[in-house]
Amino acid sequence: MAERSALDSSGIVPRSIQVGFVAAVIGLWFFLTLGGHVHLLLLPDPVKVWYAMVQLAVSGQLWAAAKVTLLSILKAYFTAVIPGLAIGFLVSRTLRSVQFFEPIFSGIFSVPLTLFFPLFIFFFGIGPNSKIAYGGLYAFFPVVITSIAAFANTDQLYIRAAQSMGASQLQLFRRVYFPSALPGILTGLRIATVVCVASVLGGETISSTNGVGHAIALQAELMETARMYAWVVYVVVAVVALNMALSVIETRTERK
């Protein structure tokens, strides 16, 4: 993919632009709050939010909530990825099944599953399980859709060549189908990560007893906006860090 290099964020110039952007956002935040342009209840100043962040970390609330949320995201992720890849590979075996299943999965994925969130609460309760099931199901679709395409696009030429050299079914998978499909699979895994984070946090915000999303919703309800923003900043930092880690992994595999 040629555009990848243009989007590569490791160069000096893009880096400084990114840092500049963050600085500008914080600067704007100071300007708006200290200049009195917005009501302090809607947006407290950064210093106040910083104190709230420190307080959350010191009191142990941060870790307690983050543990619940991170674990839910991780469980949702594997709930989505393992069946997603397995079913994606099986469906890709024949053209007929691709033609049958692909539109079904794409169709379901285009419906906002948020509509059915109350059902997850009915079935799995108000604890983390409902968020895991919801996130897992939601993220299953991008994984299965991308992996069907990725596996089905494996060049017949390579398959015939491998067969002519006596490759077993397992070797065919390990040496041909899987490496050939890997770039597409990684795209699916990346989308799944985003979907899992969004749906677990979103689910916690709507209805839960625990976790970061629950904390944010609770502080908002109590009009403790400084604390609410403190949580939001933690989430943003975590998501940015996750994204950077994923980019590193992707460029590593791409070099192969």
Partner: peptide, 8 residues
């Protein structure tokens, strides 16, 4: 056509 696997 070449049947060398491009990933190796």
């Amino acid at each position: 056509e070449s049947t060398l696997f491009p990933w190796y």
